[in-house]
Design a binder for these strands. Structure first.
Length: 811
RNA sequence: GGGCGAGUGGCGGAAUUGGUAUACGCGUUCGACUUAAAAUCGAAUGUCCAAAAGACGUGCGGGUUCAAGUCCCGCCUCGCCCACCA
């Protein structure tokens, strides 16, 4: 009898699959339904893959493998997120150029992924740093530019001093750089943006209908942060200047007893009175020197009066205008009307600086009432509900041309300029005559030049600014001298459309063929453990844009998005190099367990959406299971013919059909952990039956063994392929090969019914499945363990839930 | 402060969505095999009690119900995301 030795088996089959092109997809084959599933594009790093990667990739591998076995033309693509800071920083660290460092790291990644046995179509591999790829990223930039969705603007942006580049809002986490974790500051720079805000409402509207992990949908909705409200004009007293404010509570307008401008607000210097000038200037200086973090952490209200007054448009009252850093320049208009009776922050501020508080919503005895209610002290609007008053007051403002309805979003446009070398150049040239001009499509790609020294030099440009023969070019419009844009694109730009390129990776004429894309998209299954906001929002934005251009068939890229959790280190903390608690999947495989045991444990450890600590004993556990499976099949292969009686046959087939159904359903519902336990139970069950029935040649055993291998194949592709071939099959187990279950084997003639007395289980009954309620209750009452509980007591109620339970209520 | 989610054995986690709580795996203990160890196989394993019988038991306190891990009300703890967003 052969022993289970994973390493040689895995090597053998991986080579065979490669040679046979087992997982190569024929795009033109429309005879089968398509299934398109993938995990988020892996970013190249020097470290290679870790346990968490492996688990993430495996979810999509199992989904796609299952569909492939179920008769779909199933495609599991692979590629690399090659541009960006991680690679460039890694290159600096190892003292190589980003290109060389990247290529080496990529080879390493590839070798590692191959060893885990994912069913990728390696013939279609792509990389975002390949000129034939970023040519089309630049082409997309041109499309956006042409449609007014790419523009330049000078404003204060997040700046990371460590990484020497600006960052998008989505890349700043709690005031810190998402890459290096250092605090970011604001820097005033002219930058390129993509106008994602134009799609904010559309994206928001469509979010609820997505079959995505709920948490991601909520995070995206919060990020977009839509608020319905009004914009209101306040005139500065004794001047023509208007202070525009945004409020979600126009119903409280009569309660506005002061106004607050952000210190950076453009009107501040203009309206400040001579007497207040010095104190205002001092405050502005102080606010500017505070980091964003400090401003957020110190919630104690500060501020100074400008000395100016504004007129409340609804009641003509003169109210003071202050500046304070609790008002942010980046949201709304950078100015607010303050209603201290009905807003917590305004209340705190008014109390501290002794400003009048006027109640305009009936909030009972509450001194501060932030909820809704009937209006008071509001002239003609008295008595209205907040809801009604909002409409009426805005209507009145509109009539007086003093305000308007307004929808406000927290989301900002997507900042894509990066002052770093290793990225796709922004395909723009500057000419004195024509300004910013797009490089024509037929001149793409604008190739990233090779440079000797790519390390950022500080300042506000990338090192590309020093590559003179690259920077200096001619203007495509006028032919005169021009200079290239020296910023590169955010790596997220490269990874916002790769799932389209995957389905047409070699197209030299266009980014993709619309016909081919319409067949393959949307992506049926997508998963990852990161980028809940940034990447997934950008991809949705672009997909909608492409859809409007008629280049794709859908406006949403991912039909199902599964956001999976992290594997923690055995100590319960996040795995990280600095903590030295990283688990290396290669080490586990090399120690003799191989890929299959690792794969099965990665699925078995916990539900996909729950963080779980790695247990170093877990892989040996699943190895035991696979080993038992191996032995089961060997016993079947080497066993003689066996004769089974009716009961034994029924029992074997019941396990086989039940497990097939359970595993099929569980994979469909992303319950991979319970699918694995069901298969373990099946193997345990078969070995129990061995004692009474024996294992050997027999039709029932054949179905039991083969169906087990078929449903286990997506989890453990190597051992199942090996055993499948040992069973005499010449074709691979992995294509068009899924067992059917039959409900008729799942029902049995007899069932076990627990009997409760007053809700406590006292006995169990074995009865026939179609027993009548009366009969089962009679049997329950007569049961020797039940009778004592009934003696001398009144039976008040007897309940039988068919097939489940009997409960006798006595008193 | 706001939003979302979660609290079940020594550990990771199951529970047909109101019907035998702790499936499956890890760990532990005992046994078989072995000169021995590893591997493998078998048995036991929620708590209290010497054991049986029994009682108790899903973060805490109440409630609904014949029946609650599951539903309702009130708390506590932990995790994540957002955070002076007007």
């Amino acid at each position: 009898m052969q022993r289970y030795e994973p390493l040689p088996i895995e090597k053998k089959w991986q080579e065979k699959w490669d040679k046979d092109g087992t997982y190569v997809v024929d795009f033109s084959d429309h005879s089968k339904p398509k299934y398109y599933g993938m995990s988020m594009l892996p970013g190249i790093t020097g470290a290679g893959i870790h346990i968490g990667h492996g688990r993430t990739f495996q979810f999509s591998d199992i989904k796609v493998r299952t569909k492939r076995q179920q008769g779909f033309n199933a495609y599991n693509p692979i590629g690399w997120d090659s541009f960006g800071l991680p690679v460039e920083n890694y290159a600096i660290k190892v003292g190589k150029t980003p290109r060389i460092a990247h290529d080496e790291a990529r080879e390493n990644f590839k070798t590692q992924l191959k060893r885990l046995g994912y069913s990728y179509d390696w013939t279609k591999e792509i990389s975002t740093a390949d000129p034939q790829y970023y040519k089309w990223t630049q082409w997309i930039f041109n499309q956006l530019f042409e449609h007014g969705l790419a523009y330049q603007k000078e404003s204060a942006q997040w700046w990371c001093e460590t990484d020497q580049t600006v960052l998008a809002n989505e890349q700043v986490e709690g005031g810190k750089c998402w890459r290096c974790g250092n605090q970011v500051t604001k820097k005033n720079l002219k930058q390129w943006f993509f106008k994602i805000t134009e799609y904010a409402d559309e994206i928001l509207e469509a979010t609820d209908d997505l079959n995505w992990t709920e948490m991601v949908k909520t995070m995206q909705k919060n990020w977009i942060g839509k608020s319905q409200g009004a914009e209101v004009d306040f005139q500065v007293d004794g001047s023509k200047d208007i202070i525009k404010i945004f409020t979600t509570r126009p119903d409280t307008l009569f309660g506005a007893t002061f106004m607050v401008l952000a210190p950076e607000h453009q009107l501040v210097s203009k309206i400040t009175t001579t007497e207040s000038k010095s104190v205002v200037e001092q405050y502005i200086k102080q606010a500017a020197s505070k980091s964003e973090i400090e401003r957020q952490e110190n919630k104690e209200k500060t501020g100074v009066p400008t000395g100016a007054y504004a007129i409340n448009p609804v009641n003509g009252e003169k109210i003071p205008v202050w500046i304070a850093d609790y008002v942010m320049m980046g949201y709304g208009t950078g100015a607010i009307m303050a209603v201290p009776a009905h807003d917590e922050r305004d209340n705190e501020f008014a109390k501290k600086f002794d400003i009048a508080i006027t109640r305009v919503i009936d909030g009972g005895q509450d001194e501060l009432h932030t909820g809704e209610g009937a209006l008071i002290n509001s002239g003609q609007f008295d008595g209205m509900s907040s809801e009604q008053a909002r409409e009426e007051i805005v209507a009145w403002l509109q009539q007086q041309k003093l305000g308007n309805e307004k929808v406000q979003y927290k989301m900002r446009d997507w900042l894509i300029s990066r002052q770093r070398y290793w990225g796709a150049p922004i395909p723009i040239v500057y000419c004195d005559k024509d300004g910013a001009v797009a490089v024509p499509d037929d001149q793409l790609p604008v190739e990233l030049p090779e440079v000797d020294d790519f390390k950022p030099k500080g300042g506000a440009t990338s090192v590309l600014a020093d590559v003179e023969d690259w920077v200096n070019t001619t203007c495509p419009k006028c032919g005169g001298p021009a200079k290239r844009e020296t910023d590169t694109m955010d790596g997220y730009a490269c990874s916002s459309w790769y799932f389209l390129r995957y389905a047409d990776p070699f197209n030299e004429q266009e980014a993709w063929s619309p016909d081919q894309i319409k067949h393959w998209t949307p992506v049926d299954f997508y998963n990852g453990a990161d980028h809940a906001v940034a990447h997934l929002l950008y991809a949705r934005f672009w997909m909608r844009f492409f859809h409007k251009l008629g280049l794709v068939g859908d406006s949403e890229p991912f039909k199902r998005m599964m956001y999976n959790a992290y594997i923690m280190a055995p100590d319960g903390r996040k795995m990280s190099k600095s903590l030295g608690n990283v688990i290396d999947p290669m080490e586990i495989m090399d120690s003799g367990y191989g890929a299959d045991s690792l794969r099965v444990y990665e699925m078995f450890i916990a539900p996909y959406d729950m963080d779980a600590p790695w247990d170093t004993r877990g892989v040996p556990g699943t190895y035991r299971f696979l080993n038992r499976t191996w032995n089961l099949v060997q016993e079947y292969l080497n066993g003689d013919e066996v004769n089974l009686d009716e009961n034994q046959t029924a029992e074997i087939l019941k396990i086989a059909h039940k497990t097939t159904k359970k595993v099929t359903d569980d994979i469909e519902n992303d319950k991979f952990n319970t699918a694995v336990s069901a298969m373990m139970e099946a193997v345990n069950g078969y070995f129990k039956l061995k004692e009474s029935a024996g294992i050997g040649k027999n039709d029932s055993w054949k179905f039991a063994v083969e169906s087990l291998l078929q449903i286990l194949a997506p989890f453990a592709p190597h051992i199942t392929e090996e055993l499948w071939s040992q069973l005499g099959h010449n074709e691979t187990i992995h294509i068009d090969n899924w067992p059917q279950w039959d409900e008729k084997y799942l029902v049995s003639d007899t069932i076990t019914v627990p009997v409760q007395v007053n809700g406590k289980v006292r006995a169990t009954l074995n009865v026939s499945a179609d027993i009548s309620e009366q009969a089962v209750i009679d049997q329950a009452k007569a049961h020797e363990k039940i009778a004592p509980y009934l003696g001398g007591k009144e039976l008040r109620k007897a309940i039988y839930v068919a097939g489940r339970i009997v409960n006798l209520v006595v008193s």
